[in-house]
């Protein structure tokens, strides 16, 4: 058994003295784990940082084996993010959240979202909204997508301003009036891709996705949202304060 593909490294843990077990995310094969011999070496450690791209070759005698991986370095997004706390927490959060996708199952749309996001790193006004969209895409891929197409109560498609915390469906301003304190704000940039995304709306976006990720994805598997995500939110709040 063998395949070769471009993949994002999402996790790396030491195995024994010199090897490492890595978790990668590729378009064709989804999330895959494998043993990298010499993964703890001075040559490979910089490549195996979560957030970096690599061309990965996976080999195993049987498909159910863990298998070994060999890598050729791709673009080092992790190195680009190291010096910027906001970027680093964003990339770390994304990599940590990809670990909830099912193993060995392709998620091409999610992979494409990740690639667009990584290409836009550095432009905070672009990649932060994309990160919220990534979390929306992740919810959709794991089967709990939000429905923002029309109002859950009235069916109208205009003036959608809130989201129900129970159904994950949009609610129009008129229908939301009696329940404003119980509903989530729906950021405009999630409805209109061309709309500007101020930091307040991005925080609202993370509150919205965070609620559903926690309740529907993380709690059922007895996990908590990645600490990197909270650090990202703290960094955005700090930006807002300044």
């Amino acid at each position: 058994m063998q395949w070769t593909a471009d993949a994002l490294i999402i996790d790396c843990r030491p195995h024994g003295e010199s090897s490492a077990i890595i978790d990668v995310f590729s378009r064709q094969h989804g999330r895959y784990m494998g043993l990298v011999r010499g993964g703890n070496s001075r040559r490979l450690r910089p490549i195996l940082q979560p957030g970096n791209m690599a061309q990965v070759t996976w080999r195993a005698r049987l498909s159910e084996h863990l298998g070994t991986m060999t890598l050729d370095a791709g673009r080092a997004y992790a190195a680009e993010a190291l010096s910027d706390p906001l970027l680093l927490s964003g990339v770390s959060s994304m990599c940590a959240m990809l670990q909830v996708t099912s193993e060995r199952q392709a998620h091409p749309r999610l992979y494409d979202t990740v690639m667009v996001l990584l290409e836009e790193l550095g432009e905070a006004e672009v990649w932060l909204p994309l990160l919220v969209r990534f979390e929306m895409a992740l919810l959709e891929e794991v089967g709990f997508g939000l429905d923002l197409s029309c109002c859950a109560a009235t069916g109208v498609t205009t003036e959608l301003t809130h989201v129900s915390p129970r159904s994950g469906r949009a609610v129009s301003l008129t229908a939301a009036q009696p329940y404003l304190d119980q509903l989530f704000d729906l950021p405009n940039f999630l409805l209109n891709a061309q709309a500007e995304a101020p930091l307040e709306e991005i925080l609202a976006g993370f509150t919205l996705t965070g609620h559903f990720l926690e309740r529907r994805v993380y709690l059922p598997i007895q996990l908590v949202l990645p600490p990197a995500r909270q650090r990202l939110i703290d960094n955005i709040r700090r930006l807002l304060k300044n």
């Binding site: 450690r45 940082q49 979560p50 957030g51 992790a78 190291l82 010096s83 706390p85 680093l88 927490s89 990339v91 770390s92 990197a228 650090r231 703290d234 700090r238």
Partner: peptide, 28 residues
């Protein structure tokens, strides 16, 4: 100079943000 090491560095910088200390980091 790893993702985890630099995350720790950013955390310490935030923690010491309210102090008058000069906080520096190693160059890469």
């Amino acid at each position: 100079a790893t993702v985890e090491g630099q995350t720790t560095a950013h955390y310490i910088m935030d923690m010491l943000d309210d102090t008058p200390l000069k906080v520096t980091r190693l160059a890469h």
